[in-house]
Write a protein that binds this DNA or RNA. Structure first.
Length: 566
RNA sequence: CGGGGCGUAGCGCAGCCUGGUUAGCGCGCCUGCCUUGGGAGCAGGAGGCCGCGAGUUCGAAUCUCGCCGCCCCGACCA
């Protein structure tokens, strides 16, 4: 296509509202424009890049045996009432009334619709398994949309839903999707990790998030330097410590006037924070619980919640702590508590440690687990920190940032039960479908790809996602022979099936080079004075800046090789 | 929803505090000349409900109040 005929409104400066690099570059390169908060128009180049992602997603979903459908965006509120989510989903679900005063909503996700479709059309185990997917615009009325395409209110998502007759079959569907996702993100040319994730309110044991690795990511993930272990920080486990072997010393009470914070107590007593035991009071579904962690560790609330099998945990206020223990915060200790006590597993590795004294201005030294107190439960409760040991191989754990671009869940029967979606099994029994759901934020993949692949000059697209593989820069406005050569090269590339953009604008070379860099097209071919003098053109690789000069006649073949994928 | 900030030409901004000619600057855009291997130069030009509405004032982009929109931090998040 011709640059002069495409709508590519590039900008020299970033709009003030753009904060993150992908947003800035998507705006500057003329890929998107904002209509209103969290809602964007895709211009030709933006759409082309999006189509690249969609195509890879389609091919891999189809290869995995899924079938494409297209579900309605406008959905009746009744259906959401039936699943119970009309109340539960909250204001993120955009609701409105149609002319007949029927309550409706815009689909933020499609579990209800797909379950309704399947319950009405599949009645026998013979119709299973089935996996249906769509690529469609979703609307979620986010509290705070931000970062351009990263967290919009309207966004494009691929969502797939599997229906199986047995738990084993559902596991196979899940694994097939996990494999397909690995292929999708690999083919997109992205560096990513599949991490174990918390299942949130949906429940179940299976959930993986696919994270594109980028320093600017919103989520912290934990990866092992030595093996493939990777997990969301909310879920990340760490290896249990070696049990303590020091001699137990006699416990003693010491006065620590006004020393409430870990730091202050340690300084006062001249010990490391790792020798102190913190006692924190949480409210778990309304009931107080004492949580014990080492002084230099932090509680991970989601791990605590899971360990307690609670549906909600929250740090108690100072008043609540006092009410539950009779001790002011700062001097809480595990001895003599009347509420349940749960300890982080790292506490097992502690000997002769310091705890709160259970009364104002006192601490206890040389306290020992087993001798002085025994927690009702021990579990892995703390936030992983860099340098912790991998639970699988013992290697060193590393914290890094990622952008969630995919999430796969084993749903089980939550939706099929709520919506009474059942099939007749081989024994003639009615059973609920066992479901899984699998999302990919297609528009977010575009943003994530740019967060991961850019430099000072602009986007550096991975080859498979680039809107064009080659841009031919025609510098022949003073020399018709050069212009003619550029046009014929462009034609020849197109005829070889290489997606090519011809910069035919009557601009100065500098502007053309700047724009070519900004757009992130992987290969730039310049036809200019080097051609006029010696018949040579120049191929420049966007990512490396590597320049190759060669005869015009050889360019097509060379580029065909350079741009070959799959 | 709480806290903070911003709305002036397509984009980036100044002017506002201390009210007073015709509201400026850079980039972009249009015309002409010139130039053509990393965002050239010269000359001319178009483009503004100064977010909206009230108020104060002889007079409001500027002061006051209300509203709307946008951005950032937080809470929240399949």
């Amino acid at each position: 296509m011709l640059f002069s005929q495409l709508l590519i409104p590039t900008l020299k400066e970033s709009p003030a509202e753009a904060e993150v690099i992908s947003h800035k570059l998507l705006m500057r390169a003329g890929f998107i424009r904002k209509l209103t908060s969290g809602v964007y128009s895709y211009l030709p180049l933006g759409l082309m890049a999006l189509r690249k992602i969609e195509r890879i997603v389609r091919e891999e979903m189809n290869a995995a045996g899924a079938q494409e459908v297209l579900l309605p965006m406008v959905q009746p509120a009744d259906l959401w009432a039936e699943s119970g989510r009309l109340k539960k989903y909250g204001p993120e679900l955009l609701r409105f009334r149609d002319r007949h005063d029927r309550e409706s909503c815009l689909g933020p996700t499609h579990e209800e619709v797909i379950t309704d479709l399947v319950r009405n059309n599949i009645h026998s185990y013979r119709g299973l398994p089935v996996n249906l997917y769509q690529i469609q615009t979703k609307f979620r009325d986010e509290i705070r949309p931000r970062f351009g395409l990263m967290r919009g209110r309207e966004f494009i998502m691929k969502d797939a839903y599997s229906f199986d007759a047995s738990s084993d079959a559902a596991d196979r569907s899940y694994e097939a999707m996990k494999y397909a996702y690995h292929r999708i993100f690999t083919r997109c040319g992205l560096r990513f990790r599949a991490v174990e994730a918390d299942t949130g309110t949906i429940g179940g044991n299976f959930s993986h998030e696919f994270m594109v690795l980028a320093e600017t990511g919103e989520d912290t993930i934990v990866i092992c330097r030595s093996c493939s272990y990777a997990a969301n920080l909310e879920k990340a486990a760490c290896a249990a410590p070696a049990p303590a072997s020091d001699e137990m010393q006699p416990a003693a009470k010491v006065e620590t006037p006004g020393k409430r914070k870990v730091e202050a107590v340690c300084e006062f007593l001249g010990i490391e924070p790792s020798r102190l035991l913190k006692t924190l009071i949480y409210r778990a579904d309304g009931q107080p619980v004492a949580v014990l962690v080492r002084g230099d560790h932090e509680v991970q609330p989601v791990k605590l919640k899971n360990a307690l099998k609670a549906s909600e945990v929250e740090l108690a206020t100072d008043e609540e702590c006092f009410a539950a223990t009779g001790t002011p915060t700062g001097y809480l200790g595990p001895l003599g508590l009347k509420i349940p006590v749960i300890a982080d597993q790292a506490v097992l590795g502690m000997r002769n440690f310091v705890t709160g004294g259970g009364e104002k201005n006192f601490h206890l030294t040389n306290v020992n687990l087993g001798r002085d107190f025994t927690p009702g439960q021990v579990a892995d409760l703390r936030m992983v920190t860099p340098g912790d040991r991998c639970p699988l191989c013992g290697g060193e754990l590393e914290l890094t940032r990622g952008i969630e671009v995919g999430h796969i869940f084993k749903l089980g029967i939550a939706y099929s039960e709520a919506l009474n979606a059942r099939f007749l099994d081989a024994e003639g029994e009615m059973r609920p479908f066992i479901m899984g759901c699998y999302g990919i934020g297609v528009s977010r993949v575009l943003a994530a790809a740019i967060e991961q692949n850019h430099d000072q000059d602009g986007i550096v697209f991975p080859l498979p996602l680039a809107p064009f593989k080659v841009i031919v820069v025609n510098l022949g406005f003073a020399d018709e022979a050069v212009g003619q050569a550029a046009r014929s090269l462009y034609q020849a590339l197109r005829e070889s099936g290489i997606e090519t953009l011809l910069d035919d604008r009557d601009e100065r070379p500098g502007s053309k080079f700047k724009d070519a860099d900004l757009l992130g097209i992987p290969f730039r071919v310049t036809v200019g004075k080097r051609f006029a003098s010696g018949g040579l053109v120049e191929i420049r690789e966007r990512a490396s800046g590597k320049i190759t000069e060669l005869a015009l006649a050889e360019a097509v073949e060379r580029l065909a090789r350079l741009t070959a994928t799959d």
